[in-house]
Computed example of a mutant assay.
Amino acid sequence: MESLPTTAKPERRARSKPLYTSKPSIFMAFFSCLAWLYVAGRLWQDAENRKLLASLLQKNASQRSLILSVEEKLQVLGCKDLERRIVEVEMDLTLAKSQGYLKNQLRQSGSSSEPSRKLLAVIGVHTGFGSRLRRNAFRGSWMPKGDALKKLEERGVAIRFVIGRSANRGDTLDRNIDKENQSTKDFLILEGHEEADDELPKKAKFFFITAVQNWDAEFYVKVEDNIDLDLEGLIELLEHRRGQDGTYVGCMKSGDVIAEEGKDWYEPEWWKFGDKKSYFQHASGSLIILSKNLAQYIYINSASLKTYAHDDVSMGSWMIGLQATHIDDNRLCCGSVRQDKVCSVV
């Protein structure tokens, strides 16, 4: 028997589509893997480093002495260099003190006509605009004039009348002084100072500043123009004190501080001198002698030196804080009756 023909259906097979992966994705995955490995390695390395540092710190802490020596403390604080600098500064201060409170010698700024060699003394006779007759009297008595004044400087003593300038610069007062100086050539004119009765302490300061700048001398002497001098006696006194640094010589006195305004010798800052209102010991203003290094101290520190109502009190206050030797010499008490005194009141 014949079989019936059958229709064969085509067999359907499921076919999967091929997967396509782009090259950029592969590279990104590869680099991500590398980055992860790098980060993991660094984290592991940092952890090991921390362990090593912790162990070293613990070991050093156990070995370190609990009590530090002074040397170790200086090293810890970084003060070794500071200690060296302090020693150097102390050496410089010692040198400055031996040279008149300066490390190097002061520059001599005097005119070429002034002597360049070292003098025994510079004597400044403090005068005023109205004292011409008194100056003329001095020039004819104890004070040399003309060629004799130059010969005295050759011996080592320079004498000058000391005066400032008028409040009205260039007026008749200034012109008269300039004219007198052209004739006598015996003035030290303080160009930066205004001449006035209430400015005498500043005038004393300006004198020492200018004298130190112009002359190199063993001593600097301030003299008022109301006294006569035994010049040879003063020179002999100074000769005996050559080489004595830090000497402050004069007729020492104290005296009451006048607190009542309007009275003679009134001191506006009386309250600074204590309840007893008495001045400290200081040289009388008639004649005061300073050694070179003390005069240089005034020159160097002039801007910070306090002045009081009176010039001798002001100078005494400058000397109090220094290593100065106060020498009370009765021969410099101009009002005394001693026979061997070197000055007398006119």
Rank of each mutant, 00 (worst) to 15 (best):
R64A: 15
Y20I: 08
L305Y: 08
D228S: 09
C343T: 05
A29G: 12
T307P: 03
G124W: 01
R85Y: 11
C33N: 13
A40I: 04
G156I: 15
D275T: 11
G316A: 04
E88I: 10
A211S: 15
G100T: 02
S112Y: 09
D197K: 01
M252T: 05
L149T: 00
A324K: 05
R84W: 00
L95S: 09
T127A: 12
F31C: 02
S166V: 07
H193K: 04
E72Y: 08
G100D: 13
R331H: 08
H326D: 04
D198A: 06
E154T: 02
S141E: 01
E153Q: 12
A148M: 02
E114Q: 06
I209M: 04
T94H: 13
I327L: 09
G140T: 11
I289Q: 01
D225T: 00
A148D: 14
V87Y: 08
I177Q: 06
N49H: 09
H310E: 12
T210Q: 11
R107K: 13
S25V: 13
T172M: 14
D230K: 02
N330K: 15
E88W: 07
E236N: 14
E218S: 15
P18D: 04
V223C: 13
Q75F: 00
A196N: 14
I189V: 15
V257N: 11
S317F: 03
K263D: 04
A8Y: 11
Q63L: 06
W265L: 01
D171E: 07
R165M: 09
D328G: 00
V125Q: 07
E48V: 00
G274D: 11
L56C: 06
R84T: 09
K202H: 05
K253W: 01
G124C: 01
V70F: 06
Q58R: 12
Y101T: 03
F129Q: 12
P201N: 06
Y248P: 05
C343M: 02
S291P: 03
V221H: 04
K145T: 15
T184W: 05
L237Q: 10
